[in-house]
Nucleic acid binder design. Structure first.
Lengths: 241, 241
DNA sequence: CGAGCCCTTGACACTGTTCAAGGGCGGTGG
DNA sequence: CCACCGCCCTTGAACAGTGTCAAGGGCTCG
């Protein structure tokens, strides 16, 4: 079986070779999915979890009038709905944003991993806790930052995460979200996203056009977004075996 | 050693007796803590996690100007910072709200549990994922609801959780938060919390005074808070062994 | 009795939403 | 090849919701 470059993304490098192999072997199948396809519906019983190999996906909840709130954005290497393994169904929907390549991992193989390879099991646990840490930061973003701060904070999170998976090196990176997606991530309207991006551009802080983000002034963006990347635990892993 | 009534709170009833005993045995010590004491500081290396036995605690992050955002509220039975077991340090602070009784569980004993009792290990994992599910709902609350909706949603979450641990039976329950705490949970100012509570009271939906919440109109509160308790996974557990 | 904490209320400013109109661009079909 | 359509972004104007600042009152505790 071919190996997957970004497997377990942010933390994949810390796997032992045999652990990595165990995880590769747990993949039952790989599928191509079109953009904007719903993969998992809230409440649906699940017996597989989805590993995102290429492309972007999102988890979200809709309110009564159809307004959407993203609760997570996923990039290549993310174990998108690993939460469904212990939970057995999800409290939200999952969909692709771009065309994507996804690997399905049956839950019974994950159970076997937690029994046979406790350290890898804790690594999987760790991975879901990174999601929780990002959730907390999103709560902070929505609860305490204004529109420019939210956008700066969100873009910085994306930049740091993209760097870890080598999809960003300089100050520019591809982020295939439209302004509606940004609005749904940042708890704003797309009209206000447009205005706020115009303001950030005018002040020379960053630009976002045609799916390309460029961060011109990281220092100032970090200031207005009150951003520190600590919560991404970039330099930490699970204890070694 | 005495047994702890609320151990692993919302899910404790689903433990096998011997699993429950394993968890009890993992407790190294029990402490009394005063109200409004910080227990864990962001970034601090941790080798224990905290099980809350009685009282209320919160996890929160402060912004640059000192405004606080709660990211979680904890009740008796919650494994407050179990996240610190895989993560080894936290991205936020943890403090008591009321006087509290807390049990410390050393991480090496948790490691032993994941090795010797994988099912209990998955149950602990499950417990951290419930926190993540609540985080997501908080994101939705802050991103998509207005002030009355946020308060209704928050109070309903508290009510359902309190019922599970038998600290609420009718429509009233003790919730020892002041309006500043409510503001910090709901991403508002305390002034606006006061006005919004007055409005909810005037409309006959709920009252909150002297640390006692009474929900008079659950149906309407659920409507304006767009609340459904599904995300609390009240009727689900981890698969049986 | 005074201090401090918490809650309430009012006036006002401001941030972000809503509604509406228009423009650029790429894809599709005549 | 061109016209049209749909999607996305931009801009304006009016408006609603929430924050800010400030003052005052009730209660508890020392």
């Amino acid at each position: 079986m071919r190996t997957h470059r970004f497997l377990l993304g942010r933390r994949g490098a810390q796997l032992q070779p045999q652990e990595r192999q165990l995880l590769e072997d747990a993949i039952a199948s790989v599928h191509l999915v079109d953009a904007r396809q719903m993969l998992v519906r809230q409440g649906e019983p699940l017996s597989n979890s989805t590993l995102l190999l290429t492309g972007f996906m999102a988890r979200y909840m809709d309110d009564r009038s159809g307004h959407r709130q993203l609760v997570a954005l996923h990039m290549p290497g993310d174990f998108v709905d690993l939460h469904a393994f212990p939970l057995k169904h999800l409290d939200h929907d999952v969909a692709t944003i771009t065309p994507a390549e996804v690997a399905l991992v049956p839950h019974d193989r994950l159970t076997a991993i937690t029994e046979a390879a406790p350290h890898l099991g804790r690594m999987l646990w760790f991975s879901t806790l990174l999601d929780a840490a990002m959730h907390r930061e999103w709560i902070f973003r929505l609860g305490r930052l204004d529109a420019p701060g939210r956008m700066a904070h969100f873009l910085l999170e994306c930049w740091y995460r993209m760097r870890v998976i080598a999809l960003a090196d300089g100050l520019s990176f591809r982020l295939p979200l439209n302004q509606m997606d940004m609005a749904e991530a940042c708890g704003m309207t797309s009209v206000h996203v447009s205005r706020t991006l115009a303001m950030l551009r005018r002040r020379g802080l960053c630009t976002m056009a045609d799916g390309i983000v460029t961060l011109h002034d990281i220092v100032e963006l970090r200031r207005i977004g009150e951003f520190s990347p600590d919560y991404l635990y970039l330099h930490d892993g699970v204890e070694t075996p």
